[in-house]
Design a binder for these strands. Structure first.
Lengths: 310, 310
DNA sequence: GATGCTTACGATACCCGTAAAGATA
DNA sequence: TATCTTTACGGGTATCGTAAGCATC
């Protein structure tokens, strides 16, 4: 048994059991991949893959159980690399953040500016992705820190920590009749076409649930992945917008006006998530602390989940 | 980085950094060991060992941190071997139990008889050791299941489960005046020389504490590792004995009489301990279940610690 | 002087990639 | 037929053990 064999097992699963693809992914030949699998199966004395003729279709039961350990071995191997770098290059290295549009655009710029100042030698990679993609990237080890409002808190192999809480707000073209409605109600909103976020993004679930609970069917004419797109179409008068309140800038969005609606959709919590067991460099912990001072290295290592901040 | 290198790192620590010994332990040459360490340090770019000239003295800080991951990787590697055997030879294999004299002699014979009947093909190894040795053997992976009254429950890397509770009893030569003392008191015991267990064994701590709390200094003339030795010397009239009550057999110990003293020293709990994260074959779980029906595979996997049984 | 570590060197085994052949869709 | 896997084979590399050279105690 060697590490290359284990990498191949893991990659085979990720590549849906296409060994040619595995070869490419690991920068080696497909024949070598094939042989390694065979050698390992011979050594262990068990078939790890379900085969139909020559094609691999999936994992056998022992293969499935084995995969858990393989994953952890490879995780630990990468942890070793990280931890050793921590000593040889204390303030150098790479940090990969993966966040949704909302976080990348509105909450992270300030943090990243500060971080860059404190750790100029750290190569910071910021990926933008959907909540589900964020989960995948964290679990595969391709990203160190994930940030999103959705999905993260439900995954057992992730540790997630409340980052901050926020509310939705309504945006309308300046002079829109809704500006005068006091107090704002779901019923009043539902009288206009609505532009808001896509399903599974930035608290969209809360919006849907609020309308559903009230027995009102909103006319959602368009859903977008980010607030910039929503604002664009609200400016074009396609409807009123519902966005995360921090996405509104009075200066830049001077054609629009923001209407508070904290009472309508409830609070959302954005989470910072880490892969459980993944070794983080000290500057990664510092990054998180810059996001929220309550989340220091000790707290995070303890895995304690604190109540969300306001 | 390969597995041999990791095995060498781990073994170097176990062998007190004597690389010649490591070579012998791993059945390879000392020069190879030396080179492997150098190669790994070169690859990682960090010194893992503190050196004085050519001699190794200990681990550096990164080496210490690395060791944790190395241990887990090698644990997982052995888990893989075990789990795969579970499929290829369901009811065959090896099971290593390590227990104190008291358990090996008085509580295990019945269990082992039953187990042998159910799993005739499993090679059962029973080691006898002190509580501290039991901890070491479990942590090094040399034993699968440990049993003792002391030490086990305090080790964080072990999962320990209450096996059964028991009481001490006093043994005296037949016709001894203590037979008539009703009720038996610590003070009455302290008037005779006492033969009992060694420190750190079979509830000796409870005996000492009871006397200490009562402000009485017992005259312990001899301490032994097991009840058989204690009984021998009580028969020779060296003093009265305090032993675990299950160590007395009316038939075999006809020269002695047993005096109940549950009220004097309190209950002891014997624990079954496993190395956390160590993969156990299904027959190992069955063995534990034979010890105590409450400890089935599900309960143990959940790591739930139940209150001790009576 | 005995023990322990490093380096050099040759034999062996292992790993990789190319190429050809066979299986599957 | 195109895609994919297995097997065979040759070149390269890594690993291992012996032996010699040094450092440490």
């Amino acid at each position: 048994m060697n590490f290359q064999q284990l990498r191949i097992i893991r990659e085979a699963v990720r590549c849906n059991f296409n060994l040619t693809e595995v070869g490419n992914a690991l920068f080696t030949s497909q024949s070598g991949v094939s042989k390694h699998i065979k050698d390992l199966e011979d050594e262990l004395g068990v078939e790890l893959f379900v085969r139909k003729g020559k094609r691999l279709l999936g994992l056998t039961d022992p293969g499935q159980e084995l995969l858990e350990f393989v994953d952890r071995i490879l995780l630990d191997a990468s942890n070793i690399k990280n931890l050793v770098e921590q000593y040889s290059k204390r303030d150098e290295g790479q940090l990969t953040i993966v966040a949704t549009h909302t976080q990348a655009r509105y909450s992270l710029p300030k943090v990243i500016t500060e971080f860059k100042k404190a750790y100029p030698k750290v190569h910071l990679k910021l990926h933008q992705a959907s909540p589900n993609e964020i989960v995948t990237l964290l679990l595969s080890g391709e990203a160190d820190i994930g940030m999103a409002t959705e999905a993260l808190a439900d995954v057992s192999k992730l540790d997630s920590f409340p980052y901050y809480s926020w509310y939705h707000a309504v945006i309308v073209p300046r002079g829109h009749p809704l500006e005068k409605v006091q107090p704002l109600t779901l019923k009043a909103l539902a009288e206009y076409p609505i532009v808001t976020y896509h399903e599974g993004l930035t608290g969209r679930a809360k919006i849907d649930k609020s309308f559903l609970d009230a027995g009102i069917t909103p006319d959602i004419v368009m859903s977008a992945l980010d607030a910039d797109v929503i604002k664009t179409y609200v400016e074009l008068d396609m409807g009123i917008g519902i966005i995360a309140s921090m996405a509104f800038s009075p200066a830049k969005d001077s054609d629009l006006s923001l209407i508070n609606c904290e009472h309508l959709f409830g609070a959302n919590t954005t989470y910072i998530a880490l892969r459980r067991g993944h070794y983080l460099r000290s500057f990664a912990y510092r990054f998180i602390e810059l996001c929220s001072p309550r989340l220091n290295e000790t707290t995070i290592r303890a895995g304690v989940v604190l109540p969300p901040a306001r």
